[in-house]
Amino acid sequence: MLDALLAALTTPGLVWLVLITIVAGIVYGFAGFGAALIYMPVSVIFLTPVMAIAAFSVSAMSSLVTVFPRALPLVNRKAVAVLILSAVVAASFGIWVLRVADVTAIRWVVVVVCTVTLAALIAGWRHSVEPTLPTRVMIGGAAGFIGGLSGLTGPIMVLFQLAGRDGIATTRATTVVFLTATSLLMLPLMAAQGVLTAQAVALGSLLLIPYGVGALIGQALFRPERERFYRVIAYAIIGLATLVGMPFWDTL
């Protein structure tokens, strides 16, 4: 494990990874979403998608002691449990695709998912979806598969939540609980498929503190009455991260 830690400390772009992780944590803390949309496009500049996703899942465990405890009492636990279980089952297939797919192709998947999600959010896209059991299974499964493949578990879930009638506090809490739980439960799935390496655990552990500190800062900033302001800030940061993370910059 010491060798893995030393390797993590020499990771190319570690300073940038720490900074983007702090920013991702802050946005996640006040908006309840957007951490992976900010972290993934930038992290895959320096890391392989496999390493970036595994390390981020480890760092996301800090949410268990930062934003998760305050969010849990605000959610419909049965509904969220269905979403989480569906996501975890589907994530295994997404992780398998991640293992065998081309690295550049995965990077473009990340960029496309981020871009489409951001465009839908900015446009105020809403599609009325009846929150039935089959619907939750479908949404959870789709989110889990995309999450296992690209590390972006949140976009489908966020759009599903925003299409509902819950207030901003409940919507934010539901997304926080879902993302925290799925990130934790995906770790053994990654380990079983050889994705969760010792170096990924070490790097994720290094990023755990900056992510947790960022989330605490964001949570302290959260005010339900300033929802619009938070979203504008989150959208701007997501857009910038997506632009920076586009693979075609590598050829310039």
Rank of each mutant, 00 (worst) to 15 (best):
residue 3 D to R: 14
residue 6 L to E: 10
residue 6 L to N: 11
residue 8 A to Y: 01
residue 12 P to L: 05
residue 14 L to F: 00
residue 16 W to S: 12
residue 18 V to M: 09
residue 24 A to G: 06
residue 25 G to T: 13
residue 26 I to Q: 12
residue 32 G to A: 08
residue 32 G to S: 12
residue 43 S to L: 06
residue 44 V to I: 04
residue 46 F to D: 13
residue 47 L to S: 01
residue 55 A to H: 04
residue 66 T to I: 12
residue 70 R to Y: 02
residue 75 V to P: 02
residue 86 S to W: 00
residue 92 S to N: 10
residue 94 G to R: 03
residue 98 L to Q: 03
residue 98 L to F: 05
residue 105 A to L: 08
residue 118 L to F: 06
residue 118 L to V: 05
residue 119 A to Q: 07
residue 129 V to Q: 08
residue 129 V to W: 11
residue 130 E to R: 15
residue 132 T to F: 14
residue 134 P to H: 13
residue 135 T to Y: 05
residue 137 V to K: 13
residue 140 G to N: 12
residue 141 G to T: 12
residue 145 F to S: 12
residue 145 F to C: 01
residue 145 F to M: 06
residue 145 F to H: 07
residue 149 L to Y: 01
residue 150 S to L: 02
residue 152 L to N: 04
residue 153 T to H: 07
residue 159 L to D: 00
residue 159 L to G: 04
residue 159 L to T: 12
residue 160 F to D: 08
residue 167 G to Y: 04
residue 170 T to D: 00
residue 171 T to K: 15
residue 172 R to A: 06
residue 173 A to R: 05
residue 173 A to P: 06
residue 174 T to R: 14
residue 175 T to V: 14
residue 176 V to C: 08
residue 179 L to S: 11
residue 182 T to H: 01
residue 186 M to D: 13
residue 192 A to P: 03
residue 196 L to C: 13
residue 201 V to W: 02
residue 208 L to V: 11
residue 208 L to Q: 11
residue 210 P to I: 09
residue 212 G to E: 08
residue 215 A to I: 12
residue 225 E to S: 13
residue 227 E to N: 13
residue 229 F to M: 15
residue 234 A to Y: 09
residue 234 A to M: 15
residue 236 A to V: 13
residue 236 A to M: 07
residue 236 A to P: 09
residue 237 I to V: 14
residue 239 G to S: 10
residue 243 L to R: 01
residue 244 V to N: 00
residue 246 M to N: 04
residue 247 P to I: 04
residue 249 W to S: 02
residue 249 W to Q: 04
residue 249 W to D: 09
residue 251 T to R: 14
residue 252 L to E: 02
